[in-house]
Design a protein around this nucleic acid. Sequence first.
DNA 1: CAAATTTGTTAGAATGGTCTAACAATGTAA
DNA 2: TTACATTGTTAGACCATTCTAACAAATTTG
Lengths: 219, 219
Amino acid sequence: MASSTEENYLKSLYNLANAEGEVNLSELAASLQVSMPTANSMVKSLQKSGWVMYEKYKPLTLTKEGKKIAALIIRKHRLTEMFLVKVMNFGWEEVHEVAEQIEHIHAPKFFERMDQMLGFPTVDPHGSPIPDPQGKITPLSYTPLSHAKPGQNVQLAALTNSSTEFLEFLNSRNLSLGTQLSILSKESYDQTMVVSYAHHPSETLSEKVCERLLVRVLE
Amino acid sequence: MASSTEENYLKSLYNLANAEGEVNLSELAASLQVSMPTANSMVKSLQKSGWVMYEKYKPLTLTKEGKKIAALIIRKHRLTEMFLVKVMNFGWEEVHEVAEQIEHIHAPKFFERMDQMLGFPTVDPHGSPIPDPQGKITPLSYTPLSHAKPGQNVQLAALTNSSTEFLEFLNSRNLSLGTQLSILSKESYDQTMVVSYAHHPSETLSEKVCERLLVRVLE
DNA sequence: CAAATTTGTTAGAATGGTCTAACAATGTAA
DNA sequence: TTACATTGTTAGACCATTCTAACAAATTTG
């Protein structure tokens, strides 16, 4: 069975592969905040366990089993986040740190109960998909707000970044998942967008923000 | 900050001191299922941290700070058990293993929310008192059923042992906290007691069982 | 292409938590 | 009170996870 440390390496590899495609050692080391020799030796030991494939100077890949372990950790993480928000009344900006710890708890029934109490959710509080109990994940295909056109009506569906600072920024603008936005205009010089929603007749969102907001186009 | 391992040593010392009075190294080692040299070296390091007092060949004692750390871990454990039973519908015989893991989570808000959702409970699902947020514990003074007399009416209030096997035995007899029992007779040869309650007009309980049941005497 | 930069590797060490083997102190009982 | 049993100690080792220092391969760039 994987240790918590190993689980974190597998999870990082999984997430990096999804975000970047090819993953190399220095990216892995950076993402886990460890030195390269540390990552290097850990990768060798994960390879011995049959969870990672690695050849010197080549990119890293997860084996099938490695992917499954990673997906199931991510499942526990995202179920926990959902539980904290829906059952325990946490804000979506407060759940990451706690979930980061609870994802390593070994107690199948605990997570099954969460799942059941939540009505078997398919996404977490930030719109990210929750892998199923077999570790299968259905990728969601939303559009970044930055690709939408003036005149379109869209609904906020997910985020590509869930840092506390970004979530607090969204809170300050009353933006949450489900919010419907009308796109009023887009500045072609800096890609800034002006949108309206709920009690906000006109908000200006930077390119950086628009890239991180994933939307469902409504018409 | 104490590691999970250190927290477990402090917790064992706390519980052993409560149950046995004086605690020696071999009891500690046995209770944590580690070898004596392991316990010995850990105790030395806990002493350096200021949590344990120890002199060669003498009994072990916790410092004030050590006691507080232990009590707060026990608080997290018991709150978690209560949460699992009351909110997540676990049976009282299923919660120990999970709580054993969750007690090491560092997330004050998580436990504050549990406490609040549960209405600030003072005892766990087995009747053991929950230390307050400062680590202060109010010991409960119940009588072992084995000390009660025929003719008395009593109410089941707590257990001195919460092993899965004992809890499953109680389940099989429909005995739970709050159950009111009438003591019909006591066999002076082997201290076996005959009691009646709810839909059980006559159940015979062994001395071993009666010693582990703590009751409130009703009249 | 050659030089500079980035990326990766090896060696060697540290720390936390564990063990076994061997020995020493303490307590109990013939 | 001497012998035996229990309890505790020391020394030395191992594994997981981490580090720094030094060097080597690969990639980028002038």
